[in-house]
């Protein structure tokens, strides 16, 4: 594994996802108020999406039909039709929306808002908020299990991982992290990656420089893997053999062997990596 190329993007690239067919890579360039579409074959910017102001995290439905993006500055979730590349709707949410996740049945989009400290449940069909759940301070990322049975949400400042029953819209459990030698405030859970079978979760702990391995069934923390500095977000290879995570302060990517639960390699990349997308993939 090594770096084979770089693509010039707009200002402040953060959220990154591939289309489910692997043809395009979408990158939210927050300071340019747009999402750029990069052609995966030519590695050229092939277009832009009307994301609204300051896009950060976003999610794409399984049919590559709609993209849902959080507009951090304006307390909105914007819905974009990927075929026409047009904005088709906006939903008002709490202050500083951040994480976006789509339920596996594609009926609910969950958007977290950091200052409001909530997960908002948005009905895809009606494009409106149908439920709100208060969570630990500054909820960051949200991820559904592939079978839709659980929603996991990290709280960056609260320091925990909320395991939510998405049908009841209730928190079942809050997983706490403790690392010997580290103060509680240094543990700031951000990105989440769940295996397709839902048996393992990897929670990226930011300035704690660790990825927590969480048992998907018992929700026990099995292990802390030492990675680079300020780990943000990650992605599995399509076979789920490896998990790659971006380390924002050490400018590298750590490669985790999923079965062995070990960090096996680090790859130097550009300055301040934030997110990773791997295509084609069914699991995220």
């Amino acid at each position: 594994m090594k770096v084979t190329g770089a693509v010039k993007t707009g200002q402040r690239p953060r959220g990154i996802e591939t289309s489910k067919d692997g043809k395009f890579v979408y990158v939210a360039v927050g300071d340019d108020d747009t999402i750029e579409i990069i052609d995966a074959a030519t590695l050229q910017v092939a277009g832009k999406l009307p994301s609204g102001e300051d896009p950060e995290q976003f999610a794409i439905d399984s049919g590559d039909k709609y993209l849902y993006v959080a507009n951090e500055n304006s307390a909105l979730l914007t819905i974009i039709d990927l075929a026409t590349r047009q904005k088709v709707g906006q939903v008002a949410v709490g202050i500083e929306p951040e994480g976006v996740a789509i339920s596996p049945d594609a009926r609910i989009v969950v958007c977290t808002s950091e200052t409001t400290s909530m997960a908002h449940f948005i009905d895809v069909e009606g494009r409106k908020v149908v439920g709100n759940l208060l969570l630990g301070a500054r909820p960051r990322s949200a991820a559904f299990k592939a079978d839709g049975s659980e929603l996991w949400v990290t709280s960056e400042v609260g320091g925990g991982l909320s395991i939510v029953d998405p049908a009841a819209r209730k928190t079942k459990q809050v997983v706490k992290f403790a690392i010997p030698g580290l103060r509680g405030e240094e543990i700031q859970p951000v990105g989440i990656n769940l295996t397709h079978d839902g048996k393992l979760g990897f929670v990226h702990l930011g300035p704690a420089n660790r990825v927590a391995v969480v048992d998907g069934i018992s929700h026990e923390v099995l292990k802390y893997l030492l990675v680079g500095q300020r780990v943000w977000h990650g992605a599995f290879t399509p076979d789920e053999k490896y998990l790659l995570v971006a380390n924002g302060a050490s400018n590298d990517i750590s490669v985790i062997d999923v079965a062995a639960q070990k960090v096996i390699k680090s790859i130097q990349v550009g300055e301040m990596p934030w997110g990773i997308a791997i295509a084609p993939t069914r699991d995220r």
Binding site: A75, G94, I95, T115, T116, S117, M118, N132, L134
Partner: peptide, 9 residues
């Protein structure tokens, strides 16, 4: 900011 969260509760 308090009211935005408060309205949901």
């Amino acid at each position: 900011d308090n009211a935005t969260t408060g309205q949901f509760l």
